[in-house]
Nucleic acid binder design. Sequence first.
DNA 1: TTCGATCGTGCGGAATTCGCAGGAGTCGAG
DNA 2: CTCGACTCCTGCGAATTCCGCACGATCGAA
Lengths: 179, 179
Amino acid sequence: MHSDLVASRSADQKGSRESREPSRESRNGSSPQLDAVSLAIIEQLQEDGRRPYAAIGKAVGLSEAAVRQRVQKLLDQGVMQIVAVTDPLTVGFRRQAMVGVNVEGDVESVADALSAMSECEYVVMTAGSFDLMVEIVCEDDDHLLEVINKRIRAVPGVRSTESFVYLKLKKQTYMWGTR
Amino acid sequence: MHSDLVASRSADQKGSRESREPSRESRNGSSPQLDAVSLAIIEQLQEDGRRPYAAIGKAVGLSEAAVRQRVQKLLDQGVMQIVAVTDPLTVGFRRQAMVGVNVEGDVESVADALSAMSECEYVVMTAGSFDLMVEIVCEDDDHLLEVINKRIRAVPGVRSTESFVYLKLKKQTYMWGTR
DNA sequence: TTCGATCGTGCGGAATTCGCAGGAGTCGAG
DNA sequence: CTCGACTCCTGCGAATTCCGCACGATCGAA
């Protein structure tokens, strides 16, 4: 699938660049919007964030310098970031939970308050029976209890919460943009 | 804070290594269990996954080669991985949702089935009013609708679902293990 | 056409990564 | 205590990679 894109792309190199199929990448005005090559680069870096630029270049049909410039731009634009991710359990965080929150008043300000808490790994505003969903990472039960009952519920505007303690993490990928 | 750790650690270097406080990091069958230095290394790589080993070594008080060996081991052990993570919106996924699932029968087999779907980014078994929580990443509303109503509900054992469509992502970090 | 902006290439020099040998400390068995 | 196996760190060339820069090509707008 992607090999097609890459192949056609490298064949284009001397011809008219991006001559055809702007179909995917043009009809969207909002975000920077990436082309097939950048997508392929991201894909490479999702397999190994430290892969050398030259190797990526070989895979996507670009020179080392071109890959480097593209990666730098993607980083600067905030489209992607290259980071180490860990398994919370092996790093000493043994309790995780998803918390649904109902808010009265300004939802966004509550979201900001929760975002400021280091235990809140993930904060998202939602439509549905919760206004906010928050993922919490804690060291143990006491810690979790304190965060939910003392800290979150103390935030002005929080009407109620419902907790879902994690029993087992079955899947967790970082493969956005590679399908 | 960390300078303390690093300082005491490097002072140890010639003395009895790990002489005290083997409480956390010594014998442990289940998880590899990391010491303070590995934690510091991870912290460095969470800021920038491509940071040179020499720079990390300077920050944590180890030689370049030692950092390299530790990083390689952490990677091999699966304690961490260095990857590119992207903002779903800029990569063309404009609809996300958290879905709570209630199951009759074996929860784990349902979790496995959901994990097999590429649209399910995150699958976790929980305690509470949902048996499973699933994060879904889709291209548009049609795609989301299809995944929830056609695919997820079609899995044997799924009794009911409740969806929370994402309105706005407020926070998303990858800073596990750095607090 | 011409200017300006964007994007890719090639090329040295600096920096980094890599593999390996050697030294020091720990632990358990004899 | 002494030996041997292990683990972990260090130092050092050599290969590789990263980086900045100048130049050429394409494209849109004036």
